[in-house]
Design a protein around this nucleic acid. Structure first.
Length: 425
RNA sequence: GCCACGGUAGUGUAGCCUGGUUAGCACAAGGGACUGUGGAUCCCUUAGCCCGAGUUCAAAUCUCGGCCGUGGCCCCA
């Protein structure tokens, strides 16, 4: 092998590509059905755009480079920041809400493993301009609608809120920067470190156990909510945030989404999430089983725009493909009948070319270009799954060809003028 | 960045432990037997030891390093 692929990248062969396109197209249809319009952004952006959103640390996980003008650029590691930049640059004064969807490849310099590649694909949406419970619920319902449309069965939806905890901390006089740090620690799941940090911030024993208690809450809505209310008794700001979440859940249930886990332990480690967050896991996948992540956030101001409430999510497209496969979902891309034109020898080649060109006005057909004997050409057609073969020979002098049905083996003479109609039907 | 296992024609494999003929087999691909008819048979052809260094008279085989793959840890915007 002379040249190998760069690490963590993949080639997609025709069969796999057909399956990917079919899934992609069905995803798009659902996005469109919900009123979302597609946008696309560059494959690379200024490095600062990425670091503005995610901090300097992530440079270690980026493909970044200097171009010939000395500019620091990076291949996009995700699409939320580019899309919000696009919004700030071009769409701030368009009617609200703005519903955008995207689909594209992203790049991260990380160690490849199951469901993790250095080049991968994301599909997602942003609903910009509304902070209403129904807007936030809509994006969750949309994510679920896509998965259901695709026929995925084994997945779990977890809904939570980073707002509850943020308000709790805010009420205790803890600054936003500190809140973010705490959320990051929660996301890592390091309980000892969390306890330590909270102690340093001067939180009482009671506060600390309330936080630890809330973070463990996970399960059916009413049980989680009533327990959270007990733990948060007297913390009005946090309770308000809980009620806000309940409003979203009410709307979500109106959308018909009733199967979910209320999980107050989701922290999403990201500084820009403000309230509702959600994640979807495909239970059959391995270590990398999260197939979707999203929530409500405020990012426009980070990129120099006016603050605007936004909800959105991103699917890990490759992981969804893996999940569908593990679920045994059939992904055959639908195609029309396959047709092939074969000449009886070189003297009929020109005529065969003309006939194939004629047919292509309405159907897909391929021409025998190997100058093979009919026997070999038919053998090829057979192994390729060709449905109909048009044999071009002496009959062509009477304006006719032989049409052979490869399934039944039956064959008859047909006028060339009628051929197109025969095959289109 | 760390750990485990792996890497032989296009694909799947035998050989490796116990260094030593032309590295074997199956399928696939191209051609032919069959000059106007496929999914059958037979024949021929193409094509391989991941890369590099070391040990040795001799390395696919043993040792080390690298690259790549698979899975896991860390991380996961």
């Amino acid at each position: 092998m002379k040249y190998s692929r760069p690490r963590g990248t993949r080639d997609f062969l025709p069969e796999e590509m057909a399956a990917r396109r079919s899934v992609e197209q069905r995803m798009r249809r659902v996005f469109v059905r919900f009123g979302y319009a597609e946008v696309a952004t560059p494959t690379f952006e200024h490095l600062e755009l990425i670091t503005a959103k995610s901090g300097e640390e992530i440079v270690a996980h980026l493909y970044h480079f200097k171009d010939k003008g000395g500019r620091d650029l990076a291949l996009r590691p995700e699409l939320t920041a580019p899309v919000m930049r696009l919004y700030v640059n071009e769409l701030q004064s368009s009617p609200k809400p703005l519903r955008l969807y995207y689909f594209g490849n992203c790049f991260r310099y990380e160690r490849p493993q199951a469901g993790r590649y250095r080049e991968f694909w994301q599909a997602g949406v942003e609903l910009i301009g509304s902070s209403s419970p129904e807007a936030q619920a809509e994006v969750i319902a949309l994510a679920k609608a896509v998965l259901d449309e695709l026929g995925l069965r084994n997945y779990e939806l977890h809904v939570g809120s980073v707002g509850v905890l943020r308000k709790f901390l805010e009420e205790r006089g803890i600054a936003e920067g500190e809140q973010c740090r705490i959320m990051g620690i929660i996301d890592k799941g390091d309980e000892e470190q969390l306890e330590e940090e909270l102690l340093k911030l001067g939180l009482s024993e009671e506060d600390r156990s309330a936080i630890a208690g809330v973070l463990e809450l996970k399960g059916e809505r009413s049980a989680v909510v009533s327990r959270a209310e007990e733990l948060l008794a007297g913390r009005e700001a946090a309770l308000n945030e809980l009620r806000e979440l309940e409003g979203i859940l009410d709307a979500l249930e109106s959308f018909g989404v009733r199967e979910y886990t209320l999980n107050l332990g989701i922290a999403r480690g990201l500084d820009y999430y403000t309230g509702m967050v959600f994640e979807i896991y495909a239970s059959k996948l391995g270590a990398e089983k999260q197939i979707c992540g999203g929530g409500s956030y405020s990012l426009a101001e980070t990129f120099g725009g006016k603050p605007v409430a936004t909800s959105g999510f991103a699917f890990g497209f490759d992981r969804i493909m893996l999940a569908l496969e593990k679920d045994g979902v059939e992904l055959g891309g639908e195609e029309g009948a396959k047709i092939m034109v074969i000449p009886f020898g070189e003297e009929y080649l020109d005529r065969a070319i003309e006939i194939s060109a004629l047919l292509r006005r309405s159907v897909a057909c391929e021409l025998e270009v190997m100058r093979r004997k009919v026997k070999k050409a038919l053998s090829y057609a057979s192994s390729k799954g060709i449905d109909y073969v048009v044999l071009v020979g002496e009959e062509t002098e009477r304006g006719r060809v032989l049409l052979k049905d490869m399934r039944s083996g039956e064959q008859r003479e047909v006028d060339i003028e009628e051929l197109e109609r025969e095959l289109a039907g």
